[in-house]
Design a protein around this nucleic acid. Structure first.
Length: 420
DNA sequence: TCTGGGGTCCTAGGACCC
DNA sequence: TCTGGGGTCCTAGGACCC
């Protein structure tokens, strides 16, 4: 019975390219090899292992990274190469099995239960994958092999850098229980701190914690989940086709006055990014959420759920603008904002044939079929068409593009976008 | 020169319906 | 009339992941 074999032997692989962006830079420019490098500038997007030794981490401000490592070399970022090489590495997995779940540009699960008769046992397959990625792409990749996704993922973390760890059934709990809780999926800084309050630092200690106490500490769902994972009970199967449930865009602003002259054009730019993605896949959404972060980094969200889904740029921009005005009205003391974000959820599969328009926010001029609605529909279609022919930069909300001092290039943003 | 950007999931309270 | 329960949806906030 294949199903029984799948359940009783370690056939799930978790493959993770090491320090991916930094490794690509070192691959493409040999003079960077062996040196501490950081991809990015204002913020570190990725650090090489040589830089990690100094404590440099992704997400860290560039200035702090340079303090930690004065000889750190900043490189620009060859984003199209990241996409190409990430895709190529996943393609190697695809050559062994169709059961591949891609998690991000540089990481994927694969279940090889159905292909061991062709390629040998899972450990052998993992070796082949690693050597092919090294030989064909020149990149280091770590792989964990186990019976469950959670354990395979932990195994690949333990295997880094450039290693392979197989956790055989029967050795699972002894492997797991000495490791720190922070390696578990779902344990971040907040949960780690709470667990530390009751003296829980290893996964074994977590496993032996009374479930009631655990749930009171971190909530019902998280408590149940962590308790199960600590005993290596992970019910998750591979999901090869996942669709996004939301799409969004955000922009850090430094410190800007909370005025329409700032937020109106910024929201238009963000709405354009989001809505054009929705239109490209014909997936309009019903719930619009904005996030406003003030100068002190406190953030507030406001959302509204419409009766009809939308995907027009100006429509999304105007709804977002109204929500932001609501936030600012509720916080009159806040004079400066440091970030604006728009997100849209409740995505639907296909747009209705009718011209969209929301009845959610009562607005005379936005009635379906109005001249303005038609004009917008036409304008979006025209812009989408020009961009398809001449590229994204060919046309758009230009005044905004100039104003938004973007700290991160658009190409980098696109790497993180999930397929809608 | 305070801390980027795109996502997922959970919680808790309230509205509303049956 | 009063009380109670369950289910679903919405909103705001938080934690986490890559």
């Amino acid at each position: 019975m294949p199903a029984m074999n799948a359940a009783s032997s370690a056939t799930i692989l978790h493959a993770d390219l090491d320090a991916f962006y930094a490794s690509v830079e070192q691959l493409l420019d040999p003079s960077l090899r062996g040196k501490p490098i950081a991809v990015g500038g204002g913020v570190v997007l990725a650090a090489s292992y040589e830089a990690k030794v100094f404590g440099v981490r992704g997400g860290m401000p560039g200035r702090k990274a340079r303090e930690l490592c004065p000889q750190l070399i900043f490189v620009g970022g060859r984003f199209s190469e990241y996409q190409r090489l990430g895709d190529a590495a996943i393609k190697v997995l695809d050559d062994f099995t169709p059961l591949v779940e891609r998690i991000s540009i540089d990481e994927a699960f694969a279940d090889v239960a159905g292909c061991t008769h062709l390629f040998g046992p899972p450990e052998e397959i993992a070796r082949k994958i690693r050597s092919r990625v090294k030989a064909e792409l020149g990149l280091p990749i770590s792989i964990g092999v186990a019976r469950t996704k959670h354990l395979a993922k932990i195994a690949s973390q333990v295997a880094k850098p450039d290693g392979l760890v197989v956790v055989e059934p029967g050795t699972e709990l002894s492997f797991l229980h000495d490791l720190p809780v922070s390696l578990m999926w779902g344990v971040g800084p907040a949960t780690k701190a709470r667990l530390a309050e009751i003296g829980v630092e290893t996964i074994g200690q977590l496993a032996r914690t009374h479930s009631g106490a655990l749930e009171r500490l971190i909530g019902h769902a998280a408590g149940q989940k962590l308790a199960a994972l600590a005993w290596n009970r992970d019910p998750r199967r591979l999901e090869t086709h996942r669709r996004a449930h939301s799409a969004g865009a955000q922009s850090a602003l430094g410190r800007k006055p909370a005025l329409p002259s700032v937020f109106v054009p910024t929201l238009l730019h963000l709405a354009d990014r989001v809505a054009s993605r929705l239109r490209a896949k014909d997936r309009p959404g019903r719930t619009v959420t904005v996030r406003v972060r003030f100068a002190d980094m406190r953030a507030v969200t406001r959302s509204v759920t419409l009766e009809q889904p939308i995907q027009a740029t100006t429509m999304l921009a105007e709804i977002a603008e109204e929500l932001v005005r609501g936030v600012l009205a509720a916080h009159p003391g806040e004079r400066e904002i440091s970030l604006l974000a728009i997100s849209i959820s409740h995505l639907e599969e296909h747009a209705e044939l009718q011209l969209e328009l929301p009845l959610g926010l009562a607005d005379e001029k936005l009635k379906p079929g109005s001249r303005k609605g038609l004009a917008r529909f036409g304008a979006d279609r025209a812009i989408d068409k020009i961009r398809r022919r001449f590229g994204k930069e060919a046309v758009g909300y230009g005044t905004v593009a100039l104003e938004a001092a973007r700290s991160v290039p658009d190409a980098f943003r696109e790497l993180a976008e999930k397929d809608l």
